[in-house]
Design a protein around this nucleic acid. Structure first.
Lengths: 187, 187
DNA sequence: TTCGGCATGTAACTCGTTACATGATTTT
DNA sequence: AAAATCATGTAACGAGTTACATGCCGAA
């Protein structure tokens, strides 16, 4: 009974490395691309974690040289690492606490604003959400012709992207509903 | 130009106290009731924050006695505190990074599972989400007869609850879509 | 009288961010 | 020659959790 704490970054990294060999830099790049729609991490968190996972014997690396001298550590899973990842992957966990949302917190206190102020705030937020939605839809274009096969790793990419789009649309619907409610309800 | 860091807990507490006088215990209770749908905090974080806000001159308290000796610190905003809260409330901020989601992370790596395993995991998660949705709908019942007026503090309660319901439905739609996709797409 | 809820706090720890620090390689 | 990107790390701090620690009050 270890791992009372979650260490999700650990498994995110193991999962990425299980797909293909990667350096810390590569991992950081992934965490700031499409993956960022449900997980992210900075290199300052990644490098120490890679060191720790190496010490725990879950991953190992070879040093590759780019150009003349620049060193690059390319990591892969050990059998222990692959087993640890597998075990985590199929674990059925309780719902996490709802993530914090500063905008919703503001809306909770909306009675402290003028209706006009509040609507302005919502409209600005809505514009950002619409831009984000447009970006996500653009990302999903390559998948629209044919849904990837379940056993390819593009299947995971595809479903989480679809999820992000649905989540974004739901936020937008809510914001529009808020605007309607304010108009219909202010004294 | 202070507050480069966010200190959102600070404003969540100021906002709660602005509605009515509260003790640390009361605040902790709020943070684990309906409010938990977009913000939460434990008493171990709240008490030190209250101390800090008092030192900063944003809140002040009277000690009330319950029964014979039990002391209770009832906090209220100072004028400075009210001003600081107002300023934060109407601030238009950038979109936050998408919140982390362990379940979506697992789905991203779904090609590491058998289709049957994956569907089982999704169904278990779906059941939890449906329970949560039922709970949220129950919470929203008191508001259904008449939408609260914009200037009452029940308006904020109402719209964030509606938002939580819409978000939950969107998650559920996505999970059902995932199940359909797996069925339609496995080799 | 015991149990659940009221009430307040601190300590140790994990997780995550920003900033500090360095240097090589490729592209313009 | 400069700028962007590749590449790896550490230090200091802020945010949040779990566990420790104490004690009162009201109801069954």
């Amino acid at each position: 009974m270890e791992d009372g704490i979650l260490r999700t970054l650990k498994y995110a990294i193991l999962g990425l490395i299980s797909r293909k060999e990667m350096s810390g830099y590569d991992i950081a790049r992934e965490f700031n691309a499409e993956l960022a729609n449900f997980w992210h991490a900075k290199h300052s968190q990644i490098y120490p974690e890679l060191k720790k996972l190496t010490e725990e014997g879950l991953i190992e690396f070879d040093v590759k040289i780019s150009g003349e001298v620049l060193e690059k550590k390319v990591y892969r899973l050990t059998p222990d690492g692959a087993a640890a990842f597998r075990e985590w992957l199929v674990k059925d966990e309780e719902l996490e606490p709802t993530p914090k949302d500063v905008f919703r917190l503001r809306m909770y206190f909306s009675n402290g604003m003028q209706a006009a102020e509040c609507k302005k705030l919502i409209k600005a937020h809505l514009a950002r959400r619409l831009r984000k939605l447009a970006y996500l839809i653009k990302c999903s274009e390559p998948y629209q012709e044919a849904v990837p096969n379940f056993h390819s790793d593009r299947f995971g990419d595809y479903i989480v992207l679809e999820g992000a789009i649905m989540r974004e649309r739901s936020s937008i619907d809510w914001l529009e509903e808020c605007l309607r409610l304010i108009d219909s309800v202010q004294a």
